[in-house]
Design a protein around this nucleic acid. Structure first.
Lengths: 348, 348
DNA sequence: CTGAAAGCGCTTACAG
DNA sequence: CTGAAAGCGCTTACAG
C-alpha cells in the first residue's frame, strides 16, 4: 500500500521573506504588490527582483482576510447555448482565480431576473459579469444601478451606456464573411436575420448590407428572411429562401443554429452542400462541427472576452466610488473560420 | 450622479459572536463547525442554535489561512461536449464555493495528458475531478496514483477500482428506454452502438439486449450497427439501418449526436419522424432540443453528479493518509425525457 | 469534554 | 517615501 507523500507545497515564500531579501519592510512589499504609490523606483525594482527570485505569490486567503475584501464576482447566465456558457465560465474562472477573486454563478430564469439578482446580492458580490444577451435587459441594468454595483457586459457590441463592455465588432465580422462569399463568386446571397431584440442581429445584417453595397451589388429584399436564432426558425427561413423563383447560391445565417438548419433543408431537397449551395454561420458553436459538412463561420474569442471582463470588473470594484467610469468599450478580434460548407457557386 | 451606497455586508457575525451567544469558547464552536469529536451533545445543540440565530457563516479566507490548507480541487476536462462540460463546471463551482474550496480547471489535450496533469500538480491541487471519459484513461489514473492524489470520476458507471466514482446506471437507463420503445409497440429496434473504448457504450448495449430478452424478442444482429458517438458516424449508421431489407421502425442511438444524425438521414429519405420512424437518443445534450423534432432521450443529472463528486473529493482529501478508501461507488437516478421524436410504429 | 494562547500571511491606519 | 504595530477570523497544538 503506497503511502501518500506529504506534498504540502513546501514552505511557499511569504511577504516577510521577500522583505528580508529586498532589505525593506513587509509594508513596502505590500505596496509594490498592490501597485501602491509612494515607493521609490529603485526600491520597487529591488522588491520586484526579490519576488522573482523567491518565486513569491501572495497568499490570497491572507489577503482577503486582512483587507476584509473578498472580491466576489457574480456571473449571471441565461443559457443561450452551452458552448457559449462553458467558454464564459472557463475564461471567467481562470482569470478570477488568478486575481484571487471568487466567482459566484447564478442562473437567471426568463421572467425571474429579480430572484437571481437578489440571490447574487445576498451572496455579497462586489460586481457582476453580464454575458449577452442578459446585458441588454433593462430590468437587470436598472437593478444593478440601484444596488450600486459595477457590471461588465460580455460579447455585446452595443450595450447600455452605463456598462463597461467587451465584445467583437459584429458588423465588421458580418461584412468580412459577406466579402468572403463575394470573393468565392456568389452574387445572390440569402441572409437569415436574427431576432430584433438582440443587438447583434441588427449589426450583423448591417455588415452584410455594407459589404454588398461596397461591391455594388443591388440588394434584393426577398433575400432577407427573418429568423429567431433557433434551429427551428432556420428550417423555415431556408425553406423560404430555397423556394424563391431565383434562389440564392449561398445562405448566410446570422448564427450557427440557423445555418445548421439550412444545411438540413438543403439535404432534404437533394442539394449538396457546398457543391449546390454554400451555407455559412456565425458564432462557431459546437454545432458548427457536429453537423456535416462542418460550417464555415465566425468565431468570437468568448473565453478571452470573459477573462478580460473579469479584469475590467475588478478594476472597477477596486476603484469604486471614484468617478463612475463612463462605460469603457473594448473590441476584440474575431476570426473567420473556413471549413467545408462553402465553395464557389455552381456553374450553370 | 448617484453615489454608490457603501453596502459592505455589514458586520457579519464571527465565531466569537457565536461563542458568546452559546456561552462557550471559540474553540468549541470551531469543533462543531468542523464536525470535530469531543463535544457534548447538549453543547453542540446550543452552538448550532446560536449559529442559526446569528446567521453565522464561517469566513473561508480566515479558515484557509489558519489551517494553511486552501483546498484546491483540480478539474480536468477533455471537451466531450460543451453542454456536458458546462454542467460539470456549474455543479462543481457551486459545491466548491459552498465548501470554500477553489476550483482549478485544466484542459487535457488528446495526447498531452502529462502536461495538463503537471500544470495541475504545480498549481498545488489536493485532489482531482475526472469527468468521463477521462476517468477511463490509464495514463491519467497512473499519474494520479504516483502523485498520491485522490480522484473522483464523474458520470462513469464503470471506472477503475482505484477511483471513487459517481454516475448513473447506464445499462438500467438503456433498458428503460428500450422498454419504453417496446411499450409503444416497436418490435424491430435498431441500435447504434458507441465506441468500444467508452465503458458506457458496452453498458448501454447491454441494457438494450436485456430489455429485448426480458420481453422475449429475438435479437437480430443486423440491427446492431457500430458508431463512434459522433454525428458523422450516426449518418452512416442510420443509412445502414434504413437500407436493411426489413428496416427497423425505431432507432435507439447510444447518444444524442448520433440520434440527431439519424433524424437527418430519415428526412433525407423522405421519412417523417416520428410518424414513419421513431428515433431516440441518450444524454440529453443541447442538440436534443435544437434538432427537429426534439429528441426523446435519457438525461443524466450531470451537475448534481459534479456537486456530489466535489463533496466526496473533499472528504477524501480531509481524510487523507487514512485507509486509502477502496473507491466508493455512487449511483444517481436518470430520467427518461419524452419529447417528440418517438411514437408508435407505422401501421402497415 | 472544554478552553487560553499563539499564529496563519497579509493589510490598515498611524507615525515619522 | 518608508516602517512598527495591531488585527482580520479562524485553527493548531497544548493544557487541563
Amino acid at each position: 500500500m503506497q503511502r501518500r507523500p506529504a506534498r504540502r507545497k513546501g514552505a511557499a515564500s511569504t511577504i516577510g521573506d521577500v522583505a528580508r531579501h529586498a532589505g525593506v519592510s513587509a509594508m513596502t512589499v505590500s505596496r509594490v504588490i498592490n501597485d501602491g504609490p509612494n515607493v521609490r523606483d529603485a526600491t520597487r525594482q529591488r522588491v520586484i527582483e526579490a519576488i522573482r527570485v523567491l518565486d513569491y505569490a501572495p497568499n490570497q486567503a491572507a489577503r482577503s482576510l486582512a483587507s476584509a475584501q473578498s472580491l466576489k464576482i457574480g456571473l449571471l447566465y441565461n443559457n443561450p447555448s452551452a458552448a457559449y456558457l462553458s467558454e464564459v465560465l472557463l475564461g471567467g474562472l481562470d482569470q478570477s482565480s488568478k486575481a484571487g477573486a471568487q466567482l459566484v454563478v447564478e442562473k437567471c430564469e426568463p421572467d425571474a431576473e429579480a430572484e437571481a439578482l437578489d440571490r447574487l446580492l445576498s451572496s455579497g458580490v462586489d460586481g457582476v459579469l453580464l454575458p449577452a444577451p442578459l446585458c441588454d435587459s433593462a430590468a437587470i441594468l436598472q437593478w444593478l444601478d440601484e444596488a450600486g454595483l459595477p457590471g461588465v457586459a460580455i460579447a455585446s457590441s452595443q450595450p447600455d451606456d452605463s456598462l463597461s463592455a467587451i465584445g467583437i465588432d459584429d458588423a465588421a465580422a458580418a461584412r468580412a464573411m459577406t466579402l468572403h462569399l463575394l470573393e468565392l463568386g456568389h452574387r445572390r446571397i440569402g441572409f437569415v436575420q436574427g431576432p430584433s431584440d438582440h443587438a447583434s442581429a441588427a449589426l450583423r445584417r448591417q455588415g452584410w448590407l455594407q459589404a454588398l453595397s461596397e461591391r455594388g451589388i443591388a440588394t434584393d429584399d426577398s433575400l432577407i428572411v427573418q429568423g429567431s436564432y433557433t434551429y427551428h426558425s432556420g428550417l423555415d427561413a431556408a425553406d423560404q429562401l430555397l423556394s424563391l423563383p431565383l434562389p440564392p447560391t449561398a445562405i448566410f445565417a446570422s448564427n450557427d443554429d440557423m445555418a445548421a438548419a439550412a444545411i438540413a433543408v438543403a439535404h432534404r431537397r437533394g442539394l449538396d452542400v457546398p457543391r449546390d449551395l454554400t451555407v455559412v454561420g456565425f458564432d462557431d458553436t459546437a454545432l458548427a462541427t457536429t453537423v456535416w459538412p462542418p460550417l464555415t463561420t465566425i468565431r468570437q474569442p468568448v473565453s478571452d472576452m470573459s477573462r478580460q471582463a473579469v479584469s475590467i470588473l475588478i478594476d472597477l470594484i477596486r476603484r469604486r466610488s471614484d468617478e463612475p467610469s463612463p462605460g469603457a468599450r473594448e473590441l476584440l478580434d474575431f476570426t473567420l473560420i473556413q471549413r467545408q460548407s462553402d465553395g464557389p457557386p455552381p456553374v450553370i
